[in-house]
């Protein structure tokens, strides 16, 4: 059995970024997943949510919960990433000083997502948007 849930990521209010990840975290807690699994999902989803707000004016998170794994798909219709290899490097960022003043844009978002996910895939097309798919195994 799997449960699929969609959350909109609002692009116009940075202070609200993280609300979707918070809702996902609460849901997984109720379902009894281990704290480590919940934390990995939360961090991966949160970094994705922040990225969508910063770079793509919002997007959507779809979470699929199955007994053996949790899948997160973060999609946006932003400007896309011209060089994914470069974007995956720790410390590489195109975020503005404004974003850095808010505590993000250190070039750690994508590497962090990859680090916390057991499976990670990124597809992006310039001018069309980006889709990140992550899977975290439920080691219950």
């Amino acid at each position: 059995m799997s449960i699929v849930q969609k959350y909109a990521i609002s692009g116009d209010d940075f202070s609200r970024a993280g609300e979707a990840s918070s809702a996902i975290k609460n849901k997984l807690k109720q379902m009894g997943f281990s704290p480590e699994v919940i934390r990995n999902v939360s961090i991966a989803a949160y970094e994705g949510e922040i990225n969508a707000v910063i770079h793509a004016n919002g997007g959507e998170i779809t979470v699929t919960v199955e007994p053996e794994a949790i899948s997160i798909v973060i999609s946006d219709t932003g400007g896309g990433i011209p060089d994914i290899g470069l974007a995956m490097q720790e410390g590489y960022t195109t975020a503005s000083d404004n974003i850095r003043a808010l505590g993000f844009g250190a070039g750690m978002g994508l590497p962090n997502m990859k680090k916390y996910a057991d499976e990670f895939d990124i597809q992006s097309e310039v001018g069309k948007g980006t889709v990140i798919t992550m899977k975290i195994y439920a080691k219950r």
């Binding site: 970024a17 934390r39 961090i43 949160y46 850095r100 808010l102 505590g103 962090n112």
Partner: peptide
């Protein structure tokens, strides 16, 4: 830098920061 905080999991930790926005709590 919140992304640096997110890079290393710590057990039952305290965070010291000079940043004041809601993303610190998130």
């Amino acid at each position: 830098m919140m992304s640096d905080v997110l890079a290393y999991v710590k057990d039952q930790a305290v965070l010291l920061t000079g940043l004041l926005n809601p993303q610190v709590v998130r």
